[in-house]
Amino acid sequence: METYTAMRHFADSWGLLAMALFFIGAVVFVYRPGGRKQADQAARIPLEDD
Rank of each mutant, 00 (worst) to 15 (best):
M1P: 00
M1L: 06
E2R: 13
E2F: 02
T3L: 11
Y4Q: 13
T5H: 01
A6F: 03
A6R: 10
M7F: 06
R8N: 03
H9F: 01
F10P: 00
A11R: 12
A11Y: 06
A11L: 15
D12F: 06
S13D: 04
W14K: 07
L16D: 05
L16K: 10
L16R: 12
A18K: 14
A18E: 10
A18D: 13
M19V: 13
A20R: 14
A20T: 14
A20E: 08
A20P: 00
L21P: 00
L21N: 08
L21G: 08
F22M: 13
F22W: 12
I24Q: 09
I24L: 15
G25A: 10
A26L: 15
A26M: 09
A26N: 09
V28P: 00
V28G: 02
F29I: 11
F29N: 15
Y31I: 01
P33A: 08
G35V: 01
R36V: 00
R36M: 01
K37E: 13
A39L: 12
A39F: 06
A39T: 14
A39S: 15
A39E: 03
D40P: 00
D40F: 08
Q41D: 10
A43K: 10
R44E: 13
R44C: 01
I45A: 11
I45H: 05
I45Y: 01
P46T: 07
L47N: 10
E48H: 04
D50L: 10
D50C: 04
